[in-house]
Every structure is written in structure tokens, then in C-alpha cells.
């Protein structure tokens, strides 16, 4: 049987046995998103001479976080809920050659890691954030997240969510991220291209991908993916009567100096100033 071309980026075996399969539910969007990321990286390695060893995947806690568990054939850290961005920051400070790929979710980024998210964007650190937005907490059993839509019923909003939802892309843009895009699992080519652009951008890139959770929304995956086509509208084509639709596309695409290059300048400028109390 012919193997999936991206399987080379997964460890099927480790010194102590099988590492696959992934634990995702059937129809989950996470596997699709991991495939998008692999395709973008594969392109960079094969077409642009990026070093595979310099990619490091960092995740926190949530369904999405399991993507960077023990089966990745890359350096990775499956770390602390919400703290992915400071951890990626530390990795970059230690070794500015690294390309941190932060895999996160709507709860990880928008709630517990919200403050880290804002400040990572503000600093324009050279890292790529891929946020799988399934609009709820999947790992803990389908509770509300900051992106759960108004009116949606979840296990922590049994009478319907009456709060407003976060637009993570607008937040990233306002906070200073230099590449921001939103696509869905129904837009694989666009998603891969956005991740590729994000990885190429020397600064903070935020790519939100709406990713279905058929388990907790109790819908068929195909129905959810179809809705991603129907309920979204391209940002540049938005009309007044599109209110209620989800804008997709590029929210930001600009260049400004990233943290490491600004810091390097400081280091150069302070030479010959030695210790004195």
C-alpha cells in the first residue's frame, strides 16, 4: 500500500514501540490541519532549502495540542495550557535560527493564553501560530470557549451562550502580528498557502483555521465542512448583507523588524560599555 506522502513527518515507531495512531475522533479537523502544516513545511524544505531540524512544534493543552505529541518526527514540546507562546519565545531567544510552529486552539490562545497571545503579536517575534478554532473545548467534553457563538448551547452554557465571541484574527492584527489569515478545513489550498506565507514571514504570523468538532457539535463532518463553505465570506468581498457570515482571507500582511533583529542591533550598539556600579 502506498503511504501518505506526509507520513515521513510522523514517527510510526519509537524505541519503545508504536506511536500511532493519533487519538483524534473520526471526522475531526485536526488531522487535516496537521497535513496542511506538513505540506507547507515540506515545500519550504524541498523548494527553499529550509532545514528540517530547525522546525520545532510547540503546543499546550487541548485536542489540537495532541498534534505535537510523541509521534512528530520534528523537535516538539507538548507543554502547558496557554503558555505555548512564551515557551516558543524562550526557544527563539536561545536559538534564533529555530522556526517555532505553535499549534494552538481557541481556548489555549483566546482564554488562558490570551495575554501571552497579545504580547507575542506586539513583540513581532519570528514565530508562526496555527490556531485550530473548533469553537469549544473539545478535550474536556465540549464546554464554551471565547469563540463559541452567541446563542450556542454547550455543557457550560446549557441555556445558551449569551456572551459575545472573540475574533482572534482582528485581535492578532490589532496587537501587531504582521501576517494574519483565517481559513477553514474546507479551504485546504488556501490554508496551506497561508501557513507557508506565515512561516516565510519574519515576524509573528497568526493563521486561524476553523476546524470541525463533529463529536461535540453532534453533526456529520461533511455537513460541517459544507457549512464552512456556506457560512464564510471572503474579507475583500464582504457586503452589508453578509452580516452573520464569518470573514475569511488575509487580515494583515505587512513587514516590520522582528524581535530578534531589533535585539541584535541593541547588542551591537552597547559594545564597549562594561560593568560599573
Amino acid at each position: 500500500m502506498k503511504k501518505h506522502p506526509m507520513l515521513k513527518y510522523l514517527k510510526e515507531q519509537g524505541p519503545q514501540g508504536d506511536r500511532l495512531p493519533l487519538i483524534m475522533c473520526p471526522g475531526c479537523g485536526s488531522g487535516q490541519v496537521l497535513n496542511f502544516i506538513f505540506m507547507a513545511i515540506d515545500h519550504l524544505i524541498n523548494e527553499q532549502g529550509y532545514q528540517k531540524d530547525n522546525f520545532v512544534f510547540i503546543s499546550g493543552v487541548g485536542c489540537h495540542a495532541r498534534l505535537t505529541s510523541h509521534y512528530l518526527n520534528f523537535d516538539s514540546g507538548w507543554t502547558i495550557h496557554g503558555r505555548t507562546l512564551p515557551i516558543a519565545t524562550g526557544a527563539l531567544l536561545a536559538n534564533p535560527e529555530l522556526h517555532p510552529v505553535v499549534i494552538t486552539g481557541d481556548g489555549d490562545t483566546g482564554a488562558i493564553g490570551g495575554n501571552h497571545f497579545i504580547h507575542a503579536c506586539r513583540r513581532n517575534l519570528d514565530l508562526t501560530i496555527v490556531c485550530l478554532n473548533n469553537k469549544l473545548y473539545g478535550m474536556t467534553g465540549g464546554q464554551s470557549s471565547p469563540t463559541t457563538l452567541n446563542g450556542e448551547t454547550t455543557s457550560t452554557n446549557p441555556y445558551g451562550n449569551f456572551e459575545a465571541d472573540f475574533d482572534l484574527c482582528e485581535l492578532a492584527k490589532t496587537a501587531g502580528a504582521t501576517y494574519v489569515a483565517r481559513w477553514t478545513t474546507a479551504h485546504p489550498t488556501k490554508s496551506v498557502k497561508a501557513i507557508l506565507k506565515g512561516l516565510e514571514n519574519r515576524g509573528t504570523s497568526f493563521i486561524e483555521i476553523l476546524s470541525q468538532c463533529p463529536t461535540h457539535f453532534k453533526q456529520s463532518p461533511s455537513q460541517m465542512i459544507r457549512e464552512y463553505k456556506e457560512k464564510t465570506v471572503r474579507l475583500e468581498k464582504m457586503q452589508e448583507d453578509d452580516a452573520g457570515k464569518i470573514p475569511i482571507g488575509e487580515f494583515q500582511d505587512m513587514r516590520k523588524p522582528d524581535w530578534s533583529s531589533s535585539y541584535r542591533k541593541i547588542v551591537q550598539s552597547v559594545q564597549n560599555k562594561t560593568i560599573q556600579d
Partner: peptide, 18 residues
């Protein structure tokens, strides 16, 4: 931005060899 972030940076930096 806070102490949780500060300690997290140490974790990432150490994992990257520093």
C-alpha cells in the same frame, strides 16, 4: 507580560539548549 510567561520562557530556552 507576567511571571508565568517568564518561567515559560526559561522552559523553552532550556529545551533549545540554553
Amino acid at each position: 507580560e507576567d511571571e508565568i510567561a517568564s518561567a515559560s520562557v526559561l522552559l523553552g530556552a532550556s529545551l533549545a539548549g540554553a
